[in-house]
């Protein structure tokens, strides 16, 4: 390969002279070395968010899943159960509509809707502005419902304390293998809609085996956001995470 430009034509000569690319050795042209991650800007803003949250002792969780796995239902039920015990607010990310934020407000928590339009994930810049506007109280919990998508939310740090991946039993047990990046990035997996297990073909043990192949220390809690089954364990997890939330 041509080491100058990697064009794969090292042997190419023109009238016996080595080839050039029109952009080499021209006066005024030079090479600038950068060696920086394309995610560097997002990561820097995420670090700012993380510090902002730590200064206020706020626990922020980034909820990631495919559309329809039950994120908003989970949040509604969590808010209802923690009413008067833990102040909680929600940042909702959807491409369109403010329906989810409306549902959260109806459940009794402050909510702010981010519409990403074509954007398929939330990024740290959006969340930074949302936090400022939402202005959650010190010591509270902020839930960030990411855009339903199992791919890119894995790459975009928002400044959260942890990512929580929600997988519902109607989605198929091989999701962890198909979307390993997201499961590798999560601290906790909520296996939702377990009320439907009698009606669907879903091998829980196999699913967990796949998930732990991707991330051996992934915590897993099975629950149903509809029936409330498994909620004690989830609320206890939340309380523990809140107690451990980073403080600056």
């Amino acid at each position: 390969m041509c080491t100058t430009c990697g064009c794969g034509q090292a042997d190419l000569t023109l009238d016996g002279h080595p080839h050039t690319h029109g952009h080499e050795a021209r006066p005024g042209r030079r090479r600038v070395s950068l060696e920086q991650s394309l995610l560097a800007r997002n990561d820097a803003l995420a670090a700012q968010n993380r510090q902002w949250l730590a200064q206020r002792g706020i626990l922020a969780l980034n909820l990631v899943s495919s559309p329809g796995s039950g994120k908003t239902t989970l949040l509604e039920q969590t808010i209802l159960r923690l009413q008067g015990r833990i102040p909680m607010s929600v940042i909702e990310g959807d491409q369109q509509t403010s329906q989810d934020a409306d549902r959260i407000r109806a459940a009794g928590a402050p909510a702010l809707q981010i519409n990403t339009g074509k954007g398929c994930h939330l990024d740290a810049h959006m969340v930074g502005h949302a936090l400022e506007q939402l202005d959650p109280p010190a010591g509270s919990v902020v839930m960030i419902e990411n855009v339903g998508n199992l791919v890119c939310p894995a790459a975009f740090d928002l400044g959260e304390a942890a990512k929580v991946v929600i997988l519902s039993v109607t989605e198929g047990e091989d999701k962890p293998l198909k979307y390993p990046d997201l499961f590798a990035a999560a601290k906790l997996m909520l296996l939702n809609k377990v009320d439907l297990l009698p009606h669907v073909r879903f091998d829980v043990a196999r699913c967990l085996g796949y998930a732990h192949r991707i991330r051996p220390d992934l915590e897993v809690l099975p629950l149903s956001a509809q029936t409330g089954q498994g909620f004690e364990a989830w609320l206890a997890w939340l309380q523990a995470a809140r107690a451990l939330a980073p403080r600056a």
Partner: peptide
């Protein structure tokens, strides 16, 4: 065996030719 990944997650802007 489980493979501990050491390379392949890069998403890096290496350099530019500018004027």
């Amino acid at each position: 065996g489980f493979v501990i990944i050491s390379g392949g997650t890069e998403l890096r802007l290496k350099d530019l030719d500018v004027e």
